[in-house]
Write a protein that binds this DNA or RNA. Structure first.
Lengths: 265, 265
DNA sequence: GAGTTACGTTCGGGTAGCGGGAACGAACCG
DNA sequence: CGGTTCGTTCCCGCTACCCGAACGTAACTC
């Protein structure tokens, strides 16, 4: 199968766009009414109404006296998605344990669409706030998870992502040059783990280790915390050890539950 | 706001239907290709292709060499939905504890669309298999959760659901008569908990208690297990106590996080 | 209780946005 | 190298969709 490069020429379907606009508003606010949505999304009430009917009939929405709201159906889909990803149970176990022992934020991320998506997150008792949340995306080049995944991907995929990213400096430390990124990736590949030194958020440092499978990476696990607690010594010492050990456990326990048979030549 | 009765006259939108058909196929199988989907759903490849583009652009799908797959974005939506429901954390805590102490299946359900939707489920170490799963729906009249919720709802809503349900006997014990159901609901209301005596699945019995808030019900919590272990004595004794206590804890901890202000007359 | 406002819902028409079919290019096979 | 199968593209025609306007109803005001 061929995977098209970026730049969508295929048409995007208007009605579907509207439907998901509605769903995204409903993510933010629990109950929304027809008129409210119509104003917000710039469509007529009748249009919105038809969409709401469709979504309700399909059981993605529920109509209540206060307005429409997302139904629990989404939870079912989410569970299926979790099941589809490598060994979700092992991942949560390792992440939870690491969060408990270190007291910091521990996350597991995978690559999607040239960005990092967070699959699971646990916060230890000293954990600071971050902008990440399960299911959302962040750039590859400015996070330790992203860089670590990039470093262990097949080289062509890495190259494609590195060259197609639009770099934006979140902090003075953010890497915004493909060349610089490539050499950073080489360093990560040889040392076996990646570090984010306030490149994504000022004051926060992270360490990540990859979970590898055959020729590619399933994802990576990271510890995040304030620079005050994340000294060079600890980062390259205990923290690097921790993430690498956890990544290893996940690797060993992950009987890659892919449906597709891996193709050998 | 007026809430329309069943019987959709509003139009349902074809493209949205197709989009969700795709998503539902992707729930079952991790990776699916264009041609495969086109055949399965009875549309041309170009149609499917446009939809896939739209969904991918919106980040609900990811394109991989093996085909398209659902992205982690869904997990974010699911988390939001959980946050929107009353106090999710308390509910999981109580359900987990009850599953641990009893060893059986414990579930929390709410009413949606005249059916029971499962919000959370935990299995104790002796737990048997059931057909329920988080996010899916089951009839109100044949489950203890459903009957219990019905019993404590505002009477007009109860009446509407009871009369609009299409009754189907899953087992010889299933209640299929509105009149009979109403008297069962009265019994549940007066005794404070509901029982399912092999009405939904042969060999399984359940006990449920309602979580009430002001004039209505937020949901109900239930214990499920094999009739062999669920004798009349235990059901009306320890099990009824357990669910009622847990429901009570949830009630007390639930600062109803509704956005809408409840209307008093 | 009339008048007002705001809501969800219904209906029909005109148009552009979709769905279909066919063709292209790229992999992969023997 | 011919055959197959995949994803992708393109264009044409029709229909399904979006809009606007009207309706019904609940709630609130004075």
């Amino acid at each position: 199968m061929t995977v098209s490069e970026d730049g969508y020429s295929g048409r995007t379907i208007r009605s579907v766009t509207i439907a998901f606009n509605i769903i995204e508003v409903l993510q933010e606010r629990k109950h929304v009414g027809v008129t409210e949505l119509a104003n917000e999304l710039g469509h007529s009430k009748s249009t919105i109404y038809s969409h709401l009917q469709t979504l309700t009939e399909r059981n993605y929405l529920v109509q209540e006296p206060e307005g429409y709201r997302l139904s629990l159906r989404v939870l079912d889909i989410a569970n299926r998605v979790r099941e589809q990803v490598g060994n979700y149970d092992v991942i949560t176990k390792e992440v939870d344990e690491l969060a408990e022992t270190t007291g910091e934020i521990v996350q597991f991320g995978i690559e999607e669409h040239g960005m990092v998506s967070y699959l699971y997150k646990a916060a230890g008792d000293q954990a600071v706030e971050t902008r990440s949340r399960v299911g959302i995306q962040q750039p590859m080049y400015s996070t330790s998870l992203g860089k670590t995944i990039l470093a262990f991907m097949p080289t062509d995929r890495t190259a494609s992502i590195v060259s197609n990213a639009d770099y934006e400096a979140n902090t003075p430390n953010t890497i915004t040059e493909p060349a610089e990124l490539h050499s950073e990736l080489d360093r990560i590949e040889s040392q076996g783990y990646g570090v984010d030194d306030e490149e994504n958020i000022q004051g926060l440092r992270c360490v990540s280790a990859p979970v590898r499978h055959e020729e590619t990476v399933l994802g990576a696990i990271s510890i995040t915390g304030p620079s005050s607690r994340f000294t060079d010594d600890r980062i390259h010492g205990e923290f690097a050890d921790h993430v690498q050990r956890a990544a290893n456990v996940i690797e060993l326990n992950t009987k890659f539950s892919s449906t597709g048979v891996s193709e050998f030549d």
